[in-house]
Deep mutational scan, measured.
Amino acid sequence: MLDDRARMEAAKKEKVEQILAEFQLQEEDLKKVMRRMQKEMDRGLRLETHEEASVKMLPTYVRSTPEGSEVGDFLSLDLGGTNFRVMLVKVGEGEEGQWSVKTKHQMYSIPEDAMTGTAEMLFDYISECISDFLDKHQMKHKKLPLGFTFSFPVRHEDIDKGILLNWTKGFKASGAEGNNVVGLLRDAIKRRGDFEMDVVAMVNDTVATMISCYYEDHQCEVGMIVGTGCNACYMEEMQNVELVEGDEGRMCVNTEWGAFGDSGELDEFLLEYDRLVDESSANPGQQLYEKLIGGKYMGELVRLVLLRLVDENLLFHGEASEQLRTRGAFETRFVSQVESDTGDRKQIYNILSTLGLRPSTTDCDIVRRACESVSTRAAHMCSAGLAGVINRMRESRSEDVMRITVGVDGSVYKLHPSFKERFHASVRRLTPSCEITFIESEEGSGRGAALVSAVACKKACMLGQ
């Protein structure tokens, strides 16, 4: 009897593995994704193909990295998701002549009506938060230079001027797309009239992360975010950046690689679950690469896999709870928690219980395998993109072996128990001629924006502006 049951459990697990095998990517698959990513990057950089390229390769006008001589107080704003952060950054000489960066910050959550109302409502709310922060720190009387981390696709015309191309991540505030974001912020500050600010720089969160990590390690020339969304930036040779005049030196390019796949480059790798996630998203047909990796989508992918296993009578005796059938019910943090389970399955059992399920031991094991399959594919897909960037940098610099540091931020990278190990191992397999160091950014977005502002202020002083 026991043997029969054991055989049935083994057969069930084997069927589960057959279904989950769809998520496995072979090294040849990853090399294919990497080569296609490089081709799209090239198209994004070139003037004649930029418009139709899915990977936009947006110039950021960040050319210099901090040298350690900029000092002063800077205000930093960070808008990239449902939370908005205001930070005071003091850049100065530390002990023994070292450079020191001290920060104080406060988080504000953005109400739904500000995210989806008008641009005026959104930026009025942001300036209200700045006003509140300055009151708390008794700094209303000071006109501070301000660095703005704005983590949406922007076409820069200068370091302090950028046109919002399109909202992502659930934002829909009308009247912002096609307009200068810094102008919208300046107008809102003017409307309030109770404080003055000098907006000197606007950067993407990947750029802010790279600059913040450069402060720790001067070989950091790539910034990457794996959180709600997924994106990367890197220092490109100016001669390859056709959208900006000049051939000397390097400029940081914001790849906006989340949109890779929007022209069909990933079609052969998309599964039924991916198509369902895409169809029910706020932007169907867009940001397809990001939807395979980002935390906004990972939990939902797992939920759809679990429903398939229920329908195949391989999980929960073929019956799903009402909660499990509800879109968004299986949160991405559950994926991390399930994979963090120590082996007694308590954590998995508790999560499934909150979803109205009474799982068996085998159910718990199957749910864990589903989570591992989805998150491992995410790590491997992400590795193909980064390997594409790094191999490109090595080739354009004609280096036999390139040493490089990548600064990384984002909740999936930082909080998932195995993502970074799987990701690092896969990147290294795909970049055999590179020695890569990964560092995690601390308060990256805010500190990085302030350091970019410090560079901009120093330049302005040198130019006598």
Rank of each mutant, 00 (worst) to 15 (best):
L2M: 05
D3F: 02
R5G: 13
R5C: 15
A6N: 15
K13W: 12
K15A: 15
E17Y: 13
I19Y: 02
L20T: 15
A21I: 00
E22S: 04
F23C: 02
E27V: 05
E28R: 05
K32S: 08
K32A: 06
V33S: 01
M34P: 00
R36G: 05
R36N: 11
R36T: 03
Q38I: 12
K39H: 12
E40N: 05
M41Y: 10
D42G: 11
G44N: 02
R46L: 08
L47Y: 15
E48Q: 00
E48T: 05
E51H: 15
E52G: 15
E52D: 03
V55Q: 00
M57V: 02
M57H: 02
L58G: 07
P59K: 02
T60S: 06
T60E: 03
Y61S: 12
Y61H: 07
R63Q: 02
P66E: 06
P66D: 10
E67H: 05
G68S: 09
S69Q: 03
E70H: 10
F74M: 14
L75E: 01
L77P: 03
L77D: 05
D78Y: 06
D78W: 12
D78I: 07
L79Y: 15
G81S: 15
T82F: 15
T82Q: 06
V86D: 03
V86F: 06
L88A: 08
K90I: 06
G92T: 13
G94E: 09
E95T: 07
E95K: 07
E95Y: 14
G97E: 05
Q98T: 11
W99C: 06
T103Q: 05
K104R: 08
Q106E: 13
S109Y: 08
I110P: 04
E112R: 07
E112W: 04
E112N: 14
D113E: 13
D113R: 15
M115T: 09
T116C: 14
T116V: 08
T116K: 14
G117A: 03
T118G: 08
E120V: 11
L122S: 06
F123M: 12
F123I: 05
D124P: 02
Y125V: 10
Y125A: 06
I126K: 01
I126C: 08
S127W: 07
S127D: 00
C129P: 04
S131I: 05
S131N: 14
F133N: 02
F133M: 11
D135C: 14
D135S: 11
D135V: 13
M139W: 05
M139H: 10
K143R: 08
P145I: 06
L146K: 12
L146I: 15
L146Q: 02
G147F: 07
T149P: 04
F150C: 14
F150H: 02
F150L: 14
F150R: 11
S151V: 09
F152A: 13
P153Y: 07
R155E: 12
R155D: 15
H156Y: 14
H156T: 15
D158H: 14
D160A: 12
I163Y: 14
L164R: 11
L164N: 15
L165I: 14
W167N: 12
K169A: 06
K169T: 11
F171P: 11
K172P: 09
A173H: 07
S174G: 13
S174I: 11
G175P: 09
A176P: 11
G178A: 15
V181T: 07
V182I: 15
L184Q: 11
R186C: 05
A188M: 03
I189C: 13
R192S: 04
D194Q: 14
F195E: 11
D198K: 03
V199A: 13
V199Q: 15
V200G: 11
V203E: 13
T206N: 03
M210F: 07
C213E: 04
C213G: 06
Y215G: 09
Y215W: 10
Y215V: 11
E216V: 10
D217N: 14
H218A: 13
H218K: 15
E221G: 09
E221T: 09
V222T: 01
G223V: 05
I225Y: 10
I225H: 10
V226E: 00
C230M: 13
N231Q: 10
A232G: 02
Y234L: 01
M235Q: 00
E236L: 04
E237D: 14
E237Y: 12
Q239L: 08
V241C: 10
E242W: 03
L243Y: 08
L243M: 13
G246H: 07
D247W: 03
D247N: 06
E248V: 12
R250Q: 09
C252K: 02
W257N: 02
A259Y: 13
A259V: 07
F260Q: 01
D262I: 13
D262H: 14
S263E: 13
G264Q: 09
E268Q: 12
F269D: 02
L270I: 13
L271Q: 03
L271I: 15
R275I: 10
R275F: 10
L276D: 08
L276P: 00
L276T: 07
N283L: 12
N283P: 04
P284V: 13
G285T: 11
G285R: 13
Q287L: 13
L288T: 15
Y289R: 00
L292W: 03
G295R: 08
G295V: 08
K296A: 13
Y297R: 03
Y297A: 10
M298F: 10
G299F: 00
G299H: 00
V302M: 02
R303W: 01
L304F: 13
L309G: 02
L309K: 00
V310P: 02
D311V: 08
N313H: 12
L314V: 14
L315P: 01
L315D: 02
H317Y: 12
H317S: 12
G318I: 05
E319N: 14
A320T: 10
E322A: 13
Q323N: 15
L324V: 07
L324R: 01
R325G: 12
T326P: 08
R327W: 12
G328W: 11
G328Q: 09
E331R: 14
E331Q: 12
R333Y: 07
Q337T: 11
E339S: 11
D341E: 09
D341F: 04
D341L: 05
G343H: 10
D344L: 04
D344H: 03
K346N: 08
K346S: 10
K346Q: 09
N350A: 00
I351Q: 03
I351Y: 02
L352R: 01
S353G: 12
T354A: 06
L355V: 04
G356E: 07
G356Q: 06
L357T: 09
L357H: 02
L357S: 14
R358M: 08
S360C: 12
T361D: 15
T361N: 11
T362R: 07
C364L: 05
D365W: 08
I366C: 05
I366P: 00
R368T: 11
R368S: 11
A370F: 03
C371G: 02
E372F: 13
S373N: 06
V374S: 00
S375P: 01
T376C: 11
A378C: 13
H380V: 11
C382L: 11
C382W: 05
C382N: 08
L386P: 00
L386N: 02
L386S: 02
A387H: 00
V389F: 00
V389H: 00
I390G: 00
R392F: 05
M393R: 06
M393H: 00
R394I: 03
S396G: 07
S396W: 10
S396A: 11
S398L: 07
E399R: 07
E399P: 03
V401H: 15
V401T: 11
V406N: 00
V406R: 00
G407E: 01
V408N: 03
D409W: 05
V412K: 03
Y413D: 01
Y413M: 09
Y413L: 04
K414I: 07
L415Q: 13
H416T: 02
H416Y: 12
H416C: 10
P417C: 08
F419N: 01
F419P: 00
K420H: 01
E421R: 06
F423I: 15
F423L: 10
A425E: 07
A425M: 11
V427P: 01
V427A: 12
R428P: 02
L430T: 00
L430D: 01
T431C: 15
P432S: 09
S433D: 13
S433Q: 13
F438E: 01
E442A: 10
E443A: 12
G444T: 03
G444I: 12
S445M: 14
G446F: 14
R447T: 13
G448D: 06
G448L: 09
A450F: 13
L451W: 11
V452W: 13
S453K: 15
V455C: 12
V455P: 04
A456F: 09
K458I: 03
K458V: 04
K458E: 05
K458R: 11
A460F: 14
C461R: 15
C461E: 13
M462E: 06
